[in-house]
Design a protein around this nucleic acid. Structure first.
Length: 588
RNA sequence: GCGUCUGUAGCUCAGGGGAUAGAGCAGUGGCCUCCGACGCCAUGUGCGCAGGUUCGAUUCCUGUCAGGCGUACCA
């Protein structure tokens, strides 16, 4: 249950009633009151809730705000409410203070709801598809995928906690130009290995594939023997695939047609890559509900059917032999090509078909895509085509993720496609713990560029806030074990009205705000709010721990109340960490 | 040029039409005979700049400057 919302709604009613009473008294003129806010003040000395009703209605009533506030405050009936008192302050704010009972109820509620505490029905069971990572299967995943993975996975969790039916999906680009390029690259490397110089290198490296790759890789950089064209993938993973294929089949493909060779190599390497993606993401604790293959759209004819459908809308035209979409009809600044002059559709077409499939064929209420900011220009295009097809484009939401800037030794590391230099997801996870990576990448909201300091992340020290949060959890576990070891049992219930120190009330207030925070996080598609919540909760617990002794509490009753408060905090921490899918260690 | 995102403390970043703008890191100084010091407490001349809307702007609007990213019959 959301106690913040409950209190806030009740307060709004009380204020409106009081306003009615004041109007009936003739204290203020009977004119409409503008919208007013009920909010939580930043400064706790200003109460638990505050309203600006007196200030916003000053003009309508032609009265000074403080006067209005005094009248309302005098007529408000807090009798049976969740509040114990109110006061007028500042320029005309009315501040309200929650009753002790409210705080008690919060703690009791967490203990009742247990693993379900924090769940809400905000999403009303709507079906929402979260697509994220969708990395090119032509090579290993990079640091941007690591960020997208953490954000997308946690976002899906948050949405589930907020009452959506969320599914995770990976769109596999297993067709199109980059697959052509993949084939070309594999073929090129294969032929290099078959060449005289390649054979020499194989001989020199014996059966050491890694050494072979680095040899071939460095040689191709020199340009003499293996000059590489512009449009191929240069990573060592390509060499590795070709070398492994060569080991199995030797010169089998040397004298077949280029086309046949590429086809054979792609059908060998692509499945391995896709398996690799799945394996690496699983290691990162990301498990998808669906792996949706682009090739499916081509095989079923859906891709070309979309072109026909778009033609029927009348928003297409032909120019220089290509089929264009008149995106300018939908407010997009430029038209774009759907089908090239050579008859091959551009990447947008399968993408349109794919989103049509999500929203129309599969009838999802919402589709959310976590995308790198370098794709932002493409979103309006996609939406314009969907609109033309009669799909409500507002059903597609995009979370744009700014680039991660890698910093090492205080210098920005330039991202390179060459896997020899780029930091892959796998090497990152070899260097830093999964927990740290998942937490770290959700520390900042997606739409802000941030710096990933490798030296810091690699350090595995308490510099990383994830340890701070996990420590709070471990500390509670230890505390409880310690008390139990002295023969004290954890009580079924306690008198929580005894919890009244500032540290205790602040802690409880924050516990109560979890449902609200989950809703907000879902609404803004921002899982970073959850990591922030976790850090704040840990901070408040540590403060409480420091100032309020549980074991040596003033009385056994207070001890029991604090003990159960600790249990409630631990439960809340557990729930939050489970949203992030991060370990909840009992010892560290 | 046009589009888009971002400019908040020495650094990395929260927040957000209101009452004294926050946290972590780095620095300095305190706190373990006492539930784990992986912790707590204290300490800060900061909202890029200029206009506008408002009782009130760091927040909204316009302009401007700076940076990221787009602006392909690449994906």
């Amino acid at each position: 249950m959301d106690f913040i919302q409950k209190a806030s709604l009740q307060l709004r009613t009380l204020i409106i009633e009081a306003l009615g009473a004041v109007t009936a008294d003739g204290g203020v003129p009977a004119v409409p009151v503008p919208d007013f806010a009920v909010e939580i003040p930043a400064d706790k000395s200003h109460g638990d809730f505050a309203t600006n009703v007196a200030m916003v209605s000053a003009r309508a009533f032609r009265m000074p705000p403080r006067k209005i506030a005094d009248l309302i405050c005098g007529r408000i009936d807090l009798g049976d409410s969740l509040f114990e008192r109110c006061e007028v302050a500042g320029a005309g704010f009315i501040n309200f203070f929650l009753s002790r009972k409210w705080f008690s109820d919060v703690v009791r509620n967490v203990l009742d709801e247990k693993d379900g505490y924090g769940k809400t029905d905000y999403g009303k069971g709507k079906r929402i598809l979260v697509e994220f990572v969708s990395a090119n299967p032509t090579g290993p995943m990079h640091i941007g995928n690591a960020r997208g993975g953490a954000i997308g996975d946690c976002l899906a969790s948050v949405l589930q906690w907020a009452g959506y039916h969320a599914e995770r999906e990976f769109y596999v680009n297993d067709a199109g130009n980059q697959i052509e390029k993949f084939g070309k690259s594999l073929s090129l490397r294969y032929m290099q290995l078959c060449s005289e110089k390649g054979q020499q290198t194989i001989y020199n490296c014996m059966s050491d594939t890694e050494k072979l790759c680095s040899e071939i890789y460095s040689q191709s950089g020199e340009g003499e023997a293996f000059e590489m064209p512009e449009d191929v993938y240069l990573g060592t993973d390509i060499i590795e695939h070709s070398a492994n294929y060569y080991k199995k089949h030797l010169f089998e493909l040397e004298n077949v047609s280029e086309e046949e060779r590429r086809k054979a190599l792609v059908s060998y390497a692509l499945p391995l890559n896709i398996e690799g993606l799945e394996r690496d993401l699983k290691k990162y604790r990301i498990v998808y509900d669906n792996w949706f293959r682009e090739s499916r759209l081509h095989e079923s004819g859906e891709t070309m059917r979309i072109v026909d459908k778009l033609r029927e809308t009348g928003h297409t035209y032909e120019q220089d032999g290509a089929v264009w979409f008149r995106a300018t009809d939908f407010g997009v600044d430029k038209d774009f090509v759907l089908v090239r002059a050579n008859g091959i559709p551009t990447y947008v077409v399968p993408d349109i078909a794919y989103h049509y499939d999500k929203l129309v064929t599969r009838k999802f209420d919402k589709a959310v895509n976590v995308l790198g900011a370098d794709h932002h220009g493409y979103v309006p295009r996609l939406k314009s085509a969907l609109t033309a097809l009669g799909v409500d484009a507002d059903k597609l939401d995009v979370v744009l993720m700014q680039m991660v800037r890698l910093v090492r030794n205080g210098e920005v590391v330039k991202l390179s496609k060459r896997s020899g230099k780029a930091i892959t997801l796998v090497t990152l996870l070899d260097e830093i713990p999964i927990d740290a990576a998942r937490f770290y990448f959700n520390l900042r909201e997606a739409n802000s560029q941030f710096e990933f300091d490798l030296d810091l992340a690699v350090e595995k020290s308490s510099q990383n806030p994830v340890y701070y949060v996990q420590y709070a959890h471990a500390r509670i576990c230890s505390l409880i074990a310690n008390i139990e070891s002295e023969g004290i049992k954890i009580p079924e219930s306690a008198d929580f009205d005894l919890l009244g120190t500032p540290q205790e009330t602040e802690l409880i207030r924050h516990i109560a705000s979890l449902p609200k925070e989950i809703n907000l996080s879902a609404k803004t598609y921002d899982p970073a709010k959850i990591t922030k919540y976790a850090i704040d909760l840990a901070t408040l617990f540590h403060r409480f721990y420091d100032s309020c002794s549980v074991k040596n509490a003033e009385t056994p009753e207070i001890r029991n109340a604090r003990l159960l408060l600790c249990v409630a905090v631990r439960q809340t921490l557990r729930n939050v960490l489970s949203i992030l899918n991060i370990d909840r260690p009992e010892k560290m």
